[in-house]
Design a protein around this nucleic acid. Structure first.
Lengths: 228, 228
DNA sequence: GTACGGCGTCAGAATCCCGTCAAAGACGGC
DNA sequence: GCCGTCTTTGACGGGATTCTGACGCCGTAC
């Protein structure tokens, strides 16, 4: 699901955007000032940012610069200013698009889709690592492929999803609750038997010695960890 | 040097753009109709395209689709039409930005810079591939032709579009949702029966043994993959 | 030594997903 | 207005995937 960060200090605009975006199956975070926005962006890694330039605490262009310092996430600027200079400044600061208020919701959504589409196939913007290698096997996150000894390994959707979550935080412990919610959905959290079954599948398909795993480590009572 | 392709049938607009672009050290090609534009694009591989939708010989959106079949070059659309529908259609067809006439030259140039900047780090690789060959058949993305055993294969528009999307990300898994949204439009995403029907068509027309596909691989529950 | 909680394993049942086919509906050309 | 092509829709069978419960093992606490 695509995650959108909406930054605007006018509640009615935020409301309109949130409603429309959620109706179209986007995941939405909202901030009403620049400082919160930068924090949220760092914490949530949105796939696209919608930014109103008229914020109470800081200049909108500063927000753009703050984001561009560490991410290439598409930024779609909203503004009431129609002057050419404003647009040029925002675009040259790193914005991807500039829409003047009042705007048509259809158009905004289309521009949003365009921005997301452009960014997508490359590398999701945040992690540059698309392949992970171990002595036993290779995981290609972009192609969604696992190779072991020259042969592609077939994984079911659930197996793949679980592997993906673990590999994305290589070396770190991922709690059982977190795994369940990521793979099976937000309403799961206690069905640890699912994890046992699917971890066994993964180990059987990928570990050299499935009963003595080297990469898929169990942390009893806590969760699982992918070690490289 | 950045190469720009300008497509417009109004001489004075072309002149103004060419002068301004050349003054800023862009290399400029110009076309005054869609057919010439597509040829020029294939021959010269511009880094960015400025496209006026009002062309004498074909619909501007068709030009966008023609380009998008084989290249991800940024497309900046110019149009006198202000309606939301026009914009949405162009953007969803693959345009990157939409500027209504009359436009400010400063703004246009800023949007152009933004479009080029975005595309920069990616580029390099996949863009120049216009034909893909397998033992069974050859796909020419620019010419929109598929050849099998010396004969051209007739594909319907939908079949072609689906093939195009798959071939463009050869080796990578393309999710069902992504395929549906690319081929049928942004409002689709769950109609997987369409995919089943059209994948069957493609396999029947292109695979040596349609019931045991070598190139059009199904990843159950996830999507499809074109393997070469 | 024993009870208990957490984990791995296994196998059967229910469900989901895919490929296939055929027919109805929409569209465009003549 | 008719006809052919393309797209959409529905139904069906077979196979893969997911869910579920039972069982045994192991370490820890008492």
């Amino acid at each position: 699901m695509t995650r959108v960060l909406v930054i605007d200090d006018e509640p009615q605009i935020v409301r309109a955007l949130v409603i429309n975006l959620k109706a179209r199956k986007y995941e939405v975070d909202a901030a009403h000032d620049g400082a919160t926005a930068l924090q949220l962006a760092a914490a949530r890694h949105p796939d696209v940012v919608v930014l109103d330039l008229g914020l109470p605490d800081m200049d909108g262009v500063e927000v753009i610069r703050g984001l561009r310092g560490w991410t290439r996430v598409p930024i779609l600027v909203l503004s009431a200013r129609h002057t050419s200079d404003e647009k040029v400044e925002a675009l040259d600061a790193g914005a991807d698009d500039y829409v003047t208020k009042p705007f048509g919701m259809d158009e905004l959504l289309a521009r949003l889709r365009a921005a997301v589409r452009r960014a997508e196939p490359v590398g999701a913007g945040e992690d540059d690592v698309t392949t992970v290698e171990t002595e036993q096997f290779t995981v290609d996150l972009a192609a969604k492929k696992v190779n072991r000894g020259g042969k592609d390994v077939r994984l079911t959707p659930t197996e793949w999803h679980l592997l993906e979550v673990l590999v994305r935080s290589t070396g770190r412990l991922v709690s059982q609750r977190q795994l369940l919610q990521e793979v099976w959905g937000p309403s799961y959290g206690t069905e640890t038997n699912y994890l046992r079954v699917y971890m066994a599948q993964l180990r059987r398909k990928l570990e050299a010695d499935p009963s003595h795993p080297k990469h898929f480590i169990t942390e009893p009572g806590m969760g699982y960890r992918f070690e490289n």
